[in-house]
């Protein structure tokens, strides 16, 4: 890995070109859990390019490996075959460089730390803290101004997930990987957070990959929806969502939106 990175570094234009256009590149990736007879193929021959600055949602039936794909990109799951590059680097290098952040389904806040101290966590570990955003400003960005000192137990589920998003943004990542972050929230809170995520995406210009099992959520958030099929997990189709960039919740009642969700639902039924 190091040798390749060194070999590439003198050729600046090519590296810069890659970084400018493709944030995440997945090439013929297999992920197999276990060995021998008990081996389970979670992903098989997955290839996809995620354009820098885009918001791509990942949709599929349970067991299709959408979370596994996200975790492989985040260097949480090893790849059995194929290659993943994140900003032209291996996932491990990208992780060490803090090129991406991860938001989990559970907020995974440390319960003994205040909201502000939870946002600061990435700056205190793993050699982070070089270039970073101001934690207080991030809490303001996610709408938690005034709750800096609150412990996670004193916050609602939605607020905890907001803190988790602020924490993910503190190291100024180029890519935000989100694994069903709003899956455990009620619909009203989820709608609100969906709108706010779009606002944050516009304001920060971060590339976002967002796993969900909700068809409307996938269509509402995504510029593109990556539909995965299951057993084994593979790419069904990369659907481009033909809606204006400025999305409003009311848009979900329009015919255009319903046609998109209907198309996604048909794709899922074929899986």
């Amino acid at each position: 890995m190091n040798a390749r990175a060194l070999a590439r570094s003198p050729v600046m234009p090519a590296a810069a070109d890659v970084e400018a256009n493709v944030a995440v590149s997945v090439r013929n990736v297999d992920v197999v859990f276990g060995e021998g007879e008990s081996a389970v193929t979670a992903l098989s021959g997955v290839s996809v390019d995620i354009a820098a600055g885009s918001l791509v949602t990942m949709l599929g039936p349970s067991g299709c490996g959408k979370s596994t794909l996200l975790r492989a990109i985040a260097d949480l799951v090893p790849v059995s075959a194929g290659e993943i590059t994140v900003l032209g680097r291996s996932p491990e290098e990208a992780r060490r460089e803090r090129n991406f952040s991860f938001v989990f389904q559970d907020a995974t806040l440390l319960p003994w730390r205040s909201a502000l101290d939870n946002v600061r966590l990435p700056l205190e570990v793993g050699g982070g803290g070089a270039a970073h955003a101001e934690p207080r400003e991030l809490l303001e960005l996610v709408g938690l101004k005034g709750r800096e000192k609150a412990l996670p137990a004193e916050l609602s589920g939605g607020m905890r997930q907001r803190v988790a998003i602020a924490r993910a943004l503190v190291s100024r990542p180029k890519i935000l990987l989100m694994d069903e972050p709003f899956g455990a929230l009620d619909e009203i809170t989820r709608d609100k957070l969906n709108e706010e995520l779009l606002r944050i995406w516009r304001e920060t210009g971060t590339t976002i990959m967002f796993v969900t099992h909700s068809i409307p959520e996938a269509a509402f958030l995504g510029q593109q929806v990556l539909v995965l099929a299951s057993h084994p997990g593979r790419v069904k189709e990369l659907v481009t969502v033909d809606l204006p960039a400025q999305r409003r919740l009311a848009m979900r009642d329009t015919l255009d939106f319903v046609q998109i969700t209907a198309h996604l639902r048909r794709l899922l039924e074929e899986c």
């Binding site: 559970d106 440390l110 570990v125 793993g126």
Partner: peptide
């Protein structure tokens, strides 16, 4: 310590000793 918290610390490239001091000690109290 929940697996999710360990995943978080891994994504943050936290060292074993950082995980120990920042997470394990506190959650053991």
């Amino acid at each position: 310590v929940t697996p999710a918290t360990l995943d978080l610390m891994r994504v943050l490239s936290a060292s074993k000793s950082e995980i120990f001091w920042k997470v394990r000690i506190q959650s053991s109290l």
